[in-house]
């Protein structure tokens, strides 16, 4: 492509979208009138613009809008953002902890209205008084209280932490999510162990954190509602509660739960959970 040809292409692009300067526009139009191949190329440019105009109607999904709102809530207002990085990190940390607490509270409120309770659906441990998936998920939204488990030295693709011999996955090399901490809770008399994961090298840990909970003992009843999703032969149930997304499935007879606030999509949770 010679220089004149490139110049003409640049002019045709601007002519098509109406941004060519008036003087150049008249000159370019005269050239187009004289050369049918230029008229053809101009028409092609306008065809493309017509197609591209139609994508303006595409809106971001509600889950993304929610996650942006969630990110905003976990970020201090500009006036209070200090110049010193240490101060900023502290503020973000506190804001993140508050946001995590707020998310857990939102989920707690949501589950009182959306959790069908232990009696819903089939399940070996759905007796009265036992934990439910959403109560376990609520625990998995809490702050980290234990250090991140290390990768297993003996089993590739696993962390050196498990619940009833069900190991937590190591996702850092394969999927780019690293273990960032852990916690253990007792929910309605059942132990719930959680490992937290954050994007490897990613920012905003408060909003992009996933809790991977495994409930000790027999599997809990699958909650009602939400969506049933199948991936790689595994059946998942995905639910939204407050601004949290909950994905649950069974591994080796145990209930596993991935829970994240709005900053992580259901598709991402399924992709991670499918990678064993």
């Amino acid at each position: 492509m010679d220089r004149d040809g490139a110049d003409m292409q640049a002019k045709l692009a601007a002519l098509a979208d109406g941004t060519l300067a008036p003087g150049e526009r008249e000159q370019a139009l005269r050239q187009v009138d004289r050369q049918p191949e230029l008229a053809d190329e101009l028409r092609t440019q306008r065809d493309a613009l017509s197609v591209l105009a139609s994508v303006e109607s595409v809106r971001a999904p509600e889950s993304l809008h929610r996650s942006v709102e969630s990110l905003m809530r976990s970020t201090p207002a500009p006036a209070s953002r200090g110049r010193r990085s240490r101060r900023l990190r502290l503020q973000v940390g506190v804001a993140g902890a508050l946001a995590a607490a707020a998310a857990a509270a939102a989920l707690a409120i949501a589950l009182t209205s959306s959790d069908p309770g232990p009696g819903s659906g089939p399940g070996p441990s759905s007796g009265p008084g036992g934990p439910t998936v959403l109560r376990a998920a609520e625990a998995a939204l809490g702050p980290s209280t234990l250090p991140a488990p290390a990768p297993s030295r003996t089993r590739r693709g696993e962390l050196a932490r498990s619940m009833d011999s069900v190991a937590y996955p190591y996702w850092q090399d394969s999927l780019g999510w690293r273990a960032s901490g852990a916690r253990t809770d007792s929910v309605d008399g059942r132990q719930v162990s959680t490992v937290f994961y954050v994007p490897d090298g990613g920012a905003g840990p408060a909003s992009r954190r996933i809790g991977y909970a495994i409930v000790a003992g027999d599997a809990l009843a699958m909650p009602a509602g939400g969506r049933m999703i199948e991936s790689h032969g595994i059946r998942f149930r995905a639910l939204h509660a407050g601004d949290a997304t909950v994905l649950t499935w069974r591994r080796a007879g145990h209930t596993c739960i991935l829970v994240a606030r709005g900053g992580v999509s259901t598709a991402t949770l399924v992709r991670l959970a499918s990678w064993e």
């Binding site: 889950s63 993304l64 970020t75 953002r81 905003g204 999509s265």
Partner: peptide, 17 residues
């Protein structure tokens, strides 16, 4: 799905400081 994640990651990065 990747687009959703990319926007979230971009905003998280921008909001970090």
């Amino acid at each position: 799905e990747d687009a959703e994640d990319l926007v979230q990651e971009t905003f998280a990065h921008v909001l970090a400081r």
